[in-house]
Design a protein around this nucleic acid. Structure first.
Lengths: 192, 192
DNA sequence: CCCATATGAGACATGTTTGTCTCATGCTGG
DNA sequence: CCAGCATGAGACAAACATGTCTCATATGGG
């Protein structure tokens, strides 16, 4: 049974390693492979047995982040009900992945010419569609393009994740701060 | 006149080198000293004669970014008139430095334990004060803390700079997109 | 014209990270 | 109990960025 033996013998889960790597790289994006390994409680050798190299690790994290975002997108049922409520659900669902997303968001600035993971395009499309739908239904203003709203949501998620990490914003306020700013803005509503 | 001779002989301005370094590092934050030098049209040796090392270069860029932001803060006269208008003026003034700010914003995630440039604290204080003033005057809502609004402004400036750099947002729309989202949010205003 | 000086090119040593390898160990299933 | 396999520890070379050095060159001022 050598073909499936590793399933039982592997002390550390690949998924678990990925999680701790995400947690570490979110805080320190330049962490060494050795640091990543130690953070996962394994040796550098074992880390290399799971991921061919740093590049492969980052790619795996990218896939993980995309998968979590797509899961959040699906769980939020962004095609149902008022777009504003959909945005609220989406941010709430995506919150656990915000740190990882922040890491990937800055890491992507790196991938200049290289091929991007197609998942980002799918995500962008999903988010853009949500904002476009909100515009068509008359909920969202039309002078802010869906593309910009998508980009701004990424930026706010990253800002929020960092602000929480540094203690400048309470973790419990994360969703509220982001959603309220994104949807309502800083200006006080007229209350006639 | 050896004490001032370099002023005339220096072919490249330290300021000019800093500018091109900012432009390059904004696009590729991991650029090599050699790449920075070539981008500035000088050799690595000369670059080292201007800045003792990479660290010194980043610190110089940090000082430049802070100086530009403080100049923008001052030019925008954020203590005068309606806070909303002050924010508009501020973003307009700060726009040219947005790319550099985006670079420094992510670079700062790196400076974990090390001492931060005190300029950031001054900037934060200035921005926070602006938002606080807006809350006191009744213009801004009070459920979004000035600290978070400040953080969100940084994030939106970075997002905007990247979106413009990648062609997802027109450069001319930069200020409008950021200000309108930050102040008004995505929701359409009631127009009774 | 001549000298000073900034510059460019490149060599060199260094430290760091990475990728690969070997070997001993410990645990698990049969 | 034993064989197999994943793991940890560490050695090792290679790649890379960096910092420092020397030397030749050209350019501008006196």
């Amino acid at each position: 049974m050598s073909h499936m033996g590793y399933r039982c013998l592997m002390a550390v889960d690949r998924e678990q390693v990925l999680r701790s790597a995400a947690a570490l790289l979110t805080r320190k994006s330049t962490a060494t492979m050795d640091e990543v390994a130690r953070a996962a409680g394994i040796s550098r050798a074992t880390l290399h047995r799971h991921f061919a190299g740093r590049d492969a690790l980052v790619r795996a994290l990218e896939s993980l982040g995309i998968a979590e975002c797509e899961a959040a997108l699906k769980a939020a049922r962004t095609d149902a009900g008022p777009a504003a409520d959909a945005v609220r659900r989406l941010v709430r669902e995506i919150e656990p992945a915000a740190g990882l997303l922040a890491f990937l968001y800055t890491e992507n600035q790196l991938f200049e010419g290289e091929e991007q993971n197609e998942g980002w395009a799918r995500l962008d499309a999903g988010l853009t569609e949500l904002f476009r739908r909100g515009q068509e239904s008359g909920e969202f203003r039309i002078d802010l393009t869906p593309t910009w709203l998508t980009e701004a949501l990424y930026g706010l998620l990253a800002s929020g994740a960092w602000a929480v990490a540094e203690g400048r914003v309470a973790r419990n306020d994360f969703t509220h701060m982001i959603v309220e700013l994104l949807l309502g803005g800083a200006l006080r509503r007229e209350e006639p």
